[in-house]
């Protein structure tokens, strides 16, 4: 079992605090929907907790046979980011379909309005 050097730990704590601050600031200024924010708050909180108490991460890395705990952290982050990108891709696709329907409805409605005006 290794221990995390203090400077790295302080850096991680500071980074997670900035991360959480950004999320809260965006939420307060209504720039992010609450629905979308949960993921960011939870991941930010997890980041902060892991920075202050790295023992669970070190233990996990040890049990799964990672050479160093940071590798375990990288793997977890990579998986989380991939999942996030996948989710965003689903959202974008859904919104593209919704936008398409909106545009089409607008075009049809406009044509019907013009026809009524010409009657």
């Amino acid at each position: 079992m290794s221990t995390t050097p203090l400077p790295i730990q302080l850096l991680a704590v500071a980074a997670s605090l900035v991360y959480l601050y950004c999320v809260v600031a965006a939420l307060r200024r209504s720039r992010m929907a609450v629905r979308q924010s949960l993921l960011w708050i939870v991941s930010g909180a997890a980041f902060l907790v892991t920075s202050i108490f790295p023992q669970p991460l070190i233990w996990t890395a040890d049990k799964f046979g990672f050479e160093v705990p940071s590798n375990a952290a990288f793997v977890v982050w990579l998986l989380a980011l991939t999942a996030l990108m996948f989710y965003q891709s689903l959202t974008t696709s859904r919104q593209t379909a919704q936008l398409k329907t909106l545009c089409q409805e607008l075009a049809v409605l406009h044509a019907e309005l013009e026809q009524q005006a010409n009657k």
Partner: peptide, 13 residues
């Protein structure tokens, strides 16, 4: 009859 799409959707749309 004019069906005017506000943005370009492509041939399918």
């Amino acid at each position: 009859i004019l069906l005017r799409l506000p943005v370009n959707l492509g041939i399918g749309g």
